[in-house]
Amino acid sequence: MSTADIVILALGVVAIGSGVMVVSTRQLVHAALWLVVSFGALAASYVVLAAEFVAWVQVLIYVGAVVVLLLFGIMLTRAPIGRSEDLDSGNRIVAIITAAATAVVLVTTLVRGFRDAYFPLKARVGNGSSSVIGAGIFRTWVLPFEALSVLLLAALIGAIVLSRSDIGPEQAEPEPTPPARPRSRPPGPLARRKPRGADDEDTIVISRIDEGA
């Protein structure tokens, strides 16, 4: 077991531990912060694995952008700051079983498959430098790169369209007092509701159909 192995293991423990905290903490903001720790540990792992360019991109985009975006989301949805007891859904038992099964299957398979797999890390130094990666992207992978840029643009426009309320189909002004509960179908058949007026033909017709069905 080399030094690199030990460092990787330590960083892995940090990443997994903080990941567990992300999915188990009772405070939303803490979850975002534990996510930063997990991403940082992964970035450090990339450095150990001699992929320094990917490591910096990880730090820049994940830690710098994505987490900030998530924090914005938390704020915009007026999530409660502080402890909240109902962050886990009723699906928890199933989730634990599924996740554990996934872990067991994956770990068993990987360990059995790569028990004797080693690679010389020292010989790989320089493989992850920005010049090598840049050359790779803009020579070999330039077409996917361009396609990805178009996709990014589409995602950008989509996000704008989705989040701005003055774009899109004509929609009625939100009701003055929006219901607290999600809107669902009315509890009973339409016929049970009182018609708004005796001469309201639509309502009468609907109620007739409903009785006939």
Binding site: S2, I8, L9, V22, V23, A95, T102, A103, L110, F119
Partner: peptide, 27 residues
């Protein structure tokens, strides 16, 4: 360097993510 360590770390981290997707209530 032994390949198994980082790969197992990735697998466990993935499983943690699976748990989070299935168990957390907040989107």
């Amino acid at each position: 360097m032994h390949l198994v360590y980082p790969v197992v770390i990735a697998a466990v981290l993935f499983s943690v993510g699976v748990y989070g997707v299935l168990a957390r209530r907040n989107a």
